[in-house]
Amino acid sequence: MIELVDVYKTYKRGESSIEALRGVSLRAEKGDIFGVIGYSGAGKSTLIRLVNYLEKPTKGQVIVEGQPLDQYSVHELRNVKKKIGMIFQHFNLLESKTVYDNIAIPLVLVKKSKSEIRQRVTELLDFVGLSDKAGSYPKELSGGQKQRVGIARALAGNPTILLCDEATSALDPQTTQSILALLKRISETYPITILMITHEMAVIQQICNKVAVMEDGIIIEQGNVLDVFGSPRHETTRNFVRTVIRNTVPSSVIQTLKAEGQRRLFKLEFIGQSASEPVINGLIRNYNVQVNILFANMTEIQATTLGNMIIQLQGEDRVIDQAARFLQDQGVYIEEVDSV
């Protein structure tokens, strides 16, 4: 369990200072894959580095497994860190050590016996699918394989928390998939809290159950992935959603739209059971409006369908208002727009 309570972090550089975090609160439970998404410079890395106290908060509380980190001595903190695994964008493996020795490091640091180390490392090599690479050096591995080593190393000490700082950002899409699948498997196999930060929406979409959207040192939206991305309230969140959910209307449609002159346009978002067809049918049956579907798209997040639609309603203004209210009552997120 990870909890941040109204955390501030200010970096001082001589005269000037940078407020990297300005009052951030979040809570990730065991079993969660909690994603933090935001553009570069939003403060994501700063946030994740607070959880294992690579950075100390200027103000506020960082609570890990129910214990505030500021109560620990330096020595105690080292032991706490041993239960927090971390993986990095650029892997940070030791070039001078073999895959086996890299994975063994956390165990060597706690002075485990050779046979204990061999057993655990062998197990981990198997788990991440690198049993045949034990004797290789990082230089001889692909990016995906390096990250697997990083993951195995992070898991060596049986952590209850796994921190991932842009763990897939240096990887190609296909490798990203396999690493995400591995992280998901970790979450299903071990009792662990995973906190991952990313600027890629696809990462959140594929494995996270909770998400926080960060901008400028604050969290602008957070909650279940489905709730946040099903009905994004903030422009930045929308922008991220757009990267995985195509909801831009083809230009040919826009052309005809212009030609037809003034009709009212609506953007609709359907989540899960409020499947689109019955709702649209109901709209047509109950209201004297002409419905023109300009664009429709389906995306799957967290095994739930997310529908996206742009429609044009033609009819009396009053009836169109009623129709819009009807859609809202059906649990559809609806927004009137001037243009698409």
Binding site: L54, L77, R78, K81, K82, I84, F88, F91, N92, L109
Partner: peptide, 14 residues
């Protein structure tokens, strides 16, 4: 590579 030292620190190395 400073990343190595960050990894070391994250592991709670003395």
């Amino acid at each position: 590579n400073p990343g190595i030292l960050e990894a070391a620190e994250s592991m709670g190395a003395t």
